[in-house]
Design a protein around this nucleic acid. Structure first.
Lengths: 107, 107
DNA sequence: TATATATGCAACTATTTGGTTTCGCAAAAT
DNA sequence: ATTTTGCGAAACCAAATAGTTGCATATATA
C-alpha cells in the first residue's frame, strides 16, 4: 500500500480537509458536515492523512479532534524546489553557452 | 477521469520522469531506459503528464521529445501557500488572544 | 524496396481507491 | 440503567489505475 504525502494530497477531498483543519482542529463529524460524503468516508481520508503524518489526533472524551501537521507539507516543497533548481540550472548553462559564443575564441 | 497536477505527481515514477526531464528534453525510449518498466508504461505516464500540462512534446523526424512545463508546478505551490497562510494566521490570532489577556480589562 | 526503429493506441488484467453499509464499543445524556 | 451520540473497523462494491501484450503507422536506413 503506497502511502506518502504526494499520494495524500492527490485527492481533492483530502486537500479540502487539510485546508479546513489548517484553521482549527475538528472532529470527524464536524469535518464531514462540510462535504457530501459520509462520516465514514471522511474517516477513511483522515486515516490516510494520519498515516502520512499530515494529521494527528487528540481524544477528548468521546470526541476525537484531528489537527494538521503543517510541517510535513515541506516534503512536497522540497521536491518542487529540486525540480525547479535543475530546471533553472539548465538555462544558466545555456547562458554560459551564449556567453562563450559571444566571447572571442580562445583555442 | 480525474486529471490534475496533484494526481500527476502522486506517482513516484512520474515524479522521477519530471526530475529527469527538468535537465533536458528526452524521447520515450530514452526515458524508459532509466526505469524498470516498459516503454509503453512510461508512455502512459507521459500521456498523463501531457494532459496535466506538465509536459509538452515536439516531434523531430520519427522521434518525439518530451519537455517539462515547469511553471505548471506553481499550482501545487499555490495550494501549499494557502494552507500555510491559514495555519500561520491561526497562531497570529492566538497571539492576539494572549495579548488581550495580558492587557488590563477594558469592559 | 525491404527492413529496422520510434512511437502511439487499444484491449486486457490485477490492484488500488473512494465510497457505502453494517457492526460494536465507549462516553455522554436522559 | 437505558438511550443516544461519536467514533473506528470490517465487509463489500464500482470505478480508476498502473501495468502488460499486441498491434498499426511513420520515418530512417540498408
Amino acid at each position: 500500500m503506497r502511502r506518502d504525502v504526494f499520494q495524500a494530497i492527490a485527492d481533492p477531498t483530502r486537500r479540502a480537509i487539510l485546508l479546513l483543519l489548517a484553521s482549527q482542529a475538528m472532529t470527524p463529524n464536524a469535518i464531514a458536515e462540510h462535504f457530501d460524503s459520509t462520516r465514514q468516508a471522511v474517516s477513511k481520508h483522515l486515516k490516510i492523512l494520519i498515516e502520512c503524518e499530515l494529521l494527528h489526533s487528540k481524544q477528548e472524551g468521546r470526541e476525537i479532534f484531528y489537527e494538521i501537521e503543517a510541517k510535513k507539507l515541506n516534503e512536497i516543497d522540497k521536491y518542487l524546489e529540486q525540480v525547479k533548481k535543475i530546471w533553472e540550472r539548465r538555462f544558466n548553462q545555456l547562458d554560459d553557452v551564449l556567453k562563450t559564443l559571444k566571447s572571442p575564441h580562445k583555442k
